[in-house]
């Protein structure tokens, strides 16, 4: 499955209620005011949508958007 960065960002935007344009790659979840429940909801939606399983311990409030996108991309079959 080919998944674009935009598709991953769209899920984060949907679950956090933020505009995709606001999701700067170097911004952390904390800086964007995306709380732990929203992060959990985002992980859930990504797993559902792309058929991957993400270990939540690999993310923390200091993780950046770019960290998150990279993590998802690593888990996707190439």
């Amino acid at each position: 499955m080919t998944v674009s960065n935009e598709a991953i960002l769209a899920v984060i935007a949907e679950e956090s209620g933020l505009d995709a344009a606001a999701l700067r790659p170097d911004a952390t979840f904390e800086q964007l005011d995306i709380g732990s429940l929203d992060v959990a909801s985002t992980l859930f939606a990504i797993e559902d949508k792309f058929g991957v399983e993400i270990d939540p311990d690999q993310l923390n409030p200091a993780s950046t958007i770019s960290d998150f996108v990279d993590l998802v991309r690593q888990l996707l079959p190439s």
Binding site: L37, A40, S41, L43, F44, E47
Partner: peptide, 9 residues
């Protein structure tokens, strides 16, 4: 195996 994390709240 999983349900939405916001199911309870």
């Amino acid at each position: 195996g999983k349900v939405h994390p916001q199911t309870i709240p």
